[in-house]
Amino acid sequence: MESDFMTTTTTTETAFAQQLFDAAQTQHALTMADFTAAVPDEDAAYRVQDQLTVLKQQPVGGYKVSLTSAETQKMFAAHSPLYGAQVTTHFLAAPATVRLGQLMAPLVEAELVFKAKEDLAATDTLTDLWHKTTVAPGLELPDSRFADWFPSLPKNLVVADAAVGGLVVYGEELDTDQRFASADAVATVNCRLTHDGEVLKTGTASEVLGNPLKSLHWLVGKLAEQGKTLTAGQRVSSGTFVLPPHLTAGHWEASFDQQLGQVNLDVTND
């Protein structure tokens, strides 16, 4: 059953979604000041995002969760996370190569990527999610269809723009309950982000709502509120361990302890 949330897209919202889609196709960035009135609240922003997803004419491969740290919530004047649907082709198995020209103004984040082994429900506990998922080391490349977007893009425009979704690169996927002794243990992972061998950032999983499984739990509940389900096979980039630097050409690696391993990405200048 479709919820009321899905059935009330306005002409303005539909037009905005088309402009976001066109901006991605042409790589001609939008000016954020032109659109602040287009999405007066978060529900309107998610309706725009849904319409944008329809325009992409591809299956949803999963989601990314944003604003999962106190620091990033403060930057975007938000009090809770937000999500963006990502089409299947935006999830890349590592090692991957990406051209800078594929993206508009990308950043780079180190994250855990979960994959649902079965459909997930809003009633699932963190322990249920620990049993029902695989986990992989990940690099997420947030990107926006708005010029000069980081860190000043208004929150509702972030939501409309598929949570500034770009690409998600994921490493080896292993059962979460085989990799970690408990759901709580997921919070203790540490990572290191390097570019051409130089360590740029270090971070810990507890930056992500205290535990990345809490980010996944939030997402499953938020989707349920909107009449949606996180289904078997879909992946979730669960939130960054580090404040993201800009993506540049070269070799990027995020390495994680607790035998999660690393994820490698080569970025070319073309």
Rank of each mutant, 00 (worst) to 15 (best):
T9D: 00
T12A: 13
Q19P: 11
L20K: 04
L20P: 08
F21P: 08
F21H: 15
A23Y: 05
H28M: 12
A33N: 13
T36F: 04
D41R: 07
E42W: 02
D43R: 08
Y46A: 00
D50A: 11
V54D: 07
P59V: 10
G62P: 09
Y63L: 00
A70G: 05
E71Q: 11
H79Y: 04
Y83G: 01
T89L: 01
L92E: 09
T97K: 03
R99Y: 05
G101K: 12
A105F: 11
V113Q: 01
F114S: 00
A122Q: 11
T123W: 03
H131I: 01
A136H: 09
L141K: 06
P142I: 01
S144N: 12
D148F: 04
P151S: 08
P154L: 11
L157R: 12
L157Q: 08
D161N: 09
A163E: 02
V164N: 10
G165D: 06
L167R: 14
V168P: 12
G171N: 06
G171F: 02
L174T: 15
D177M: 10
S182R: 13
L193T: 11
E198F: 07
E198S: 13
L200Q: 11
S206L: 01
G210W: 12
N211M: 01
P212Q: 04
P212V: 04
P212A: 00
L213F: 03
H217M: 00
V220N: 04
K222M: 06
S237R: 01
F241V: 00
H251Q: 15
E253M: 13
D257W: 07
D257R: 13
Q259G: 05
T268I: 15
